[in-house]
Design a protein around this nucleic acid. Sequence first.
RNA 1: GCGUCUGUCGUCAAGUGGUUAAGACCUCGGAUUGUGGUUCCGAUAUGCAUGGGUUCGAAUCCCAUCAGACGCCCCA
Length: 446
Amino acid sequence: MLNKIKNFDVNKSGNFYRFLVYMIDNSGLNSYNNFMAKIINVIKGTKDILPQEVGAWQKLEETALNIFSKYGYHEIRTPIFEATELFARGVGDTTDIVNKEMYTFEKSDRSLTLRPENTAGVVRSFIENGMSRLSAPVKLWYKGPMFRYERPQAGRQRQFHQVGVEMFGIKQPAADAEVILLAVNYLKALGLNDLEVEINSLGCPTCREAYKAKIKEVLKPELDNLCEDCRTRYEKNPLRLLDCKVESCKEIFEKPEIKKVIQSDFICEECAEHFKTLKSYLDKTGIKYVENKLLVRGLDYYNRTVFEIKSNNLGSQNAVCGGGRYDSLVKNLGGEDTPAVGWAMGMERLNALLPDVAVKKLDAYIVSTSPSDAFEFAEELRAAGKCVEFDLANKKFTKQLEKASKVANYALILGEDEIKENKVSVKNLETSEQTTVSRDMVLSLI
RNA sequence: GCGUCUGUCGUCAAGUGGUUAAGACCUCGGAUUGUGGUUCCGAUAUGCAUGGGUUCGAAUCCCAUCAGACGCCCCA
């Protein structure tokens, strides 16, 4: 008895109190059977994907395989956790993702981290498996769960899923264009047409440094008037200053002398040429886009092209896709100098834009009083490719038929009369039409 | 990490200080021993997230904790 009690968490005194009340009320020792064990809930920021929702997910995954294959991309599956250092070096240690959002744990003197994104993992695999020796471009795609310790809200969870592509080995803007085209066509294939593509160029490290310096210079006198976040950004990543939403900061950025610097075309000739060519390719393929000079991505590894795809039908987390070029990441992680470009989409956000997919009905439900005959017949139909179920609990005929009408297109009645004559009554549950045929005819009817 | 709002059955909910906590859907059983999807009947919360407080009396008021939703930050 005491052992049984010990199995429950008596510290949650609500349940324990209820248990005591039961003991007193019934003044018996058998009543612990009525005591419900404590329920364990899903972890904050995680979700079950239930059978009625999973159809949309399957569609996302099937469409990904379908579309990406057409462009020659191959799926890669990397581990869900990696060395912490990979993300610190890959994603960048000035980012929020690395600084405060990683699920990190120690095991055997190693620091490991649940992946907050998958570009770093794919790059690690690219290097480790010597893919730089493969004929460029190397085109990879992935899908799977990612983990970030953030406050959950609409379109944001702690475990969420991304589908993404990475292309290695091509420095020409055609790679950027293909990757963007791929994103747009994937979204189109999902039936999502009214999304907005925003692009920008961050320039190369050289021209960006000059730009950063200019911004810092022109903002220096205003430093005290900026919000706290902006003052940190001023030091850490001045480019991020630009999309601040605080009114007082916006006003400062509107001042003519500051606006002039922000909007100046700071990128060097080569970068400008790259960006221009990219735009010409996008124009050629008919992709509509808007240039957004304030578009800066939160991961440190991007250079030149960055882009986002946004929807107006989501909450405040409205970006479904984000990506760009990261020419120095492979080298920074110890590989050969290899240009690369890619993007990731948030599958939960895509899902929010997709209509529900109905749960598929069975082809047939066998209604029978003889489980052994039903087993045999069901296996026969399943072997022929049909989806078939039957009652496993010896329920009454009417109950079986009721169940059939809920879950299947056809009821296959295999009663005593039918079994004797080796026949089956096939009932169309939509039209109520019923015919009795020999067993081998059934497949041609359902 | 900060802010706002919300927690009543598996789900959606009524109830805003008074005794046995409406109703609907779902589920299960029956009407119906071989004909469902319509109909009718019945069953299902010793309790209102949890703990404490105020009160003769609390789902209802107060406090704390926990959880959820949304927003900020950030990102997909």
